[in-house]
């Protein structure tokens, strides 16, 4: 545990002493801010139109603002995750510092966990910025906080999966660009698999859509904690981390 902490703090530091963390945080905040603005605006416009027409349909902040925004967040995250994970191992392999880590009395899994947790922590920092936006909703309205909390949990789990996959891909190359591009490709695939079920009903389509990370986020966005979705995320995280530590081991055989 101590070793995981050492790696974790070192990784988190190197995110924050370089411009990476600030760049990601800013971009994420701006992009989410845009979505937030659009969601609020259309909500307000919709409400005013109804008043003008004299109809009073029930309006719900949770259903009409928070839920679509959470879904947006889950997709925006896909674009940022490669930038978080691409350097994790590729950079160490290129600069040779991996030799320091692997000749220190650490287990491979401790190194992997430390690095992955640092990536997760950076993502959490990004999510914290979005919580500022949601705070406005609580200030001006009275939404239910529980679905939002479950939504955040879902975001965290989904990011955990993709970060684990990204970490794994980063061990495969010494080139950060390749690691980033490959992770980006995988993230996009795990997103578009969701659409396959829309136009095909074969078993393959079902399997593909089951594999999609965004499909499993739907229940979290609705504010429902579904066991099968949580299990899916947990499995992918464990599998990704397992692959990463195996890959680190094979690094020694290959290099």
């Amino acid at each position: 545990m101590r070793n995981v902490w050492i790696i974790f703090t070192k990784e988190l530091r190197s995110y924050f002493v370089s411009p990476i963390a600030y760049l990601l945080l800013t971009m994420f905040a701006i992009i989410f801010g845009f979505f937030f603005f659009v969601a609020i605006k259309s909500f307000v416009v919709f409400g005013m139109e109804q008043q003008m027409r004299g109809e009073m349909m029930p309006m719900n902040v949770n259903e009409q603002i928070i839920r679509p925004l959470l879904s947006n967040l889950s997709v925006i995250g896909l674009f940022f995750i490669p930038m978080i994970t691409m350097r994790l191992f590729a950079e160490e392999k290129r600069s040779g510092t991996i030799e320091l880590l692997t000749t220190s009395p650490l287990r491979d899994l401790e190194i992997v966990l430390g690095k992955w947790l640092a990536a997760v922590a950076l993502y959490v920092a990004m999510l914290l910025f979005t919580s500022l936006n949601f705070a406005f909703l609580f200030h001006y309205g009275n939404p239910d906080w529980k679905p939002l909390a479950i939504g955040y949990l879902g975001l965290l789990l989904q990011a955990g999966c993709l970060l684990a996959i990204g970490t794994f891909i980063s061990t495969l190359t010494r080139n950060q660009i390749i690691a980033g591009a490959a992770t980006f490709g995988v993230c996009l695939m795990l997103w578009i698999f969701e659409w396959v079920a829309g136009f095909d009903t074969s078993v393959w389509a079902k399997i593909l859509s089951y594999l999609s990370v965004t499909v499993h986020f739907d229940s979290f966005a609705r504010g429902v904690l579904e066991l099968k979705d949580a299990v899916y995320y947990a499995t992918v995280i464990l599998f990704g981390l397992f692959l990463t530590s195996r890959s680190m081991e094979s690094l020694r055989w290959r290099s």
Binding site: N3, K10, R13, S14, S95
Partner: peptide, 25 residues
């Protein structure tokens, strides 16, 4: 162990690097 190229992290300063390695070891 000192590998052929010293395993240094360019973004760290000397003291915090040595402290990090010490903790690792």
């Amino acid at each position: 162990y000192l590998p052929e190229t010293p395993p240094l992290y360019p973004e760290m300063d000397t003291e915090s690097y040595l402290a990090f390695v010490a903790r690792l070891k």
